[in-house]
Design a protein around this nucleic acid. Structure first.
Length: 220
DNA sequence: ATCCAGGCTGAGG
DNA sequence: CCTCAGCATGGA
């Protein structure tokens, strides 16, 4: 068992002990989660959520398909990058139409193949694909994000540069389990927002002990 | 006013 | 393979 694997496990165990379990993604509609994954790209959830609300509830993929690019862009204005995101929502929805908007059809696919197809959609990169896999489809693919990078760098892990390498390492440390992966990504974000912003707040950080325990405490 | 948030793409080294 | 400008709003 390598040092890195052990450290990763210790971090998640600490966070889990400190914060406990809770449902993190704030909705359970599969399609809405998919759109939310795109709308929240490099944007805070408040702004993304307002965009979702503007698209109406219940969210209907056929409605999105019927809107013009301009109409869609205006509706999601609050999420930022609205011109790009409008195209991305369209691309994702067109792809989903190929499955008759049935989430079951996605669940029936092999995970690696589904992930590959998601990555082929314009506007869906590693993190967005994994969010869709875990929260919308229910496949155990670990979501890596900016907070995961910061948190692990600050406890002294030699974080792999590429998204795929980092994800591979974490998945090696944490046995694949959809509920657990969903929970752990939420912990990364929520903990990160409190303590691991660009300017860290190390006082009262539940990972203090690990940082001190870890070789290089780079939390500055 | 400046900084940043639950990234991705395409162009260029 | 890698880096990086560009994309844009709203809240602190």
């Amino acid at each position: 068992m390598s040092e890195a694997i052990t450290l990763i496990q210790q971090v998640f165990e600490s966070l889990e002990r400190h914060y406990g379990y809770y449902q993190w993604w704030p909705c359970d509609d599969h399609y809405e989660i998919m759109l939310g994954a795109i709308l929240v790209q490099n944007t805070n959830w408040r702004n993304a959520e307002q965009a979702l609300l503007n698209l109406g509830k219940p969210l209907d993929p056929k409605l999105i398909a019927s809107l013009s690019l301009e109409e869609l862009a205006q509706a999601i204005r609050s999420s930022g990058y609205y011109n790009q995101k409008a195209k991305r929502l369209k691309a994702l929805t067109e792809w989903f139409a190929g499955f008759e908007y049935r989430i079951d059809a996605l669940r029936a696919m092999e995970q690696a193949e589904l992930r590959k197809q998601l990555l082929a959609i314009n506007g869906i990169g590693g993190e967005t694909a994994d969010v869709i896999l875990v929260y919308a489809v229910g496949k155990p693919s670990f979501v890596i994000d900016a907070y995961a990078r910061r948190i692990f760098e600050r406890v002294g892990l030699d974080v792999p540069k590429s998204y795929e390498a980092f994800r591979g390492l974490v998945e090696q440390a944490i046995t694949p389990d959809t509920q657990r992966y969903a929970h752990y990504h939420g912990l990364m974000v929520d903990h990160g927002q409190q303590f691991c912003n660009p300017t860290p707040k190390c006082d009262a950080c539940p990972l203090n002990r690990l940082c001190a325990l870890g070789r290089t405490n780079t939390c500055k």
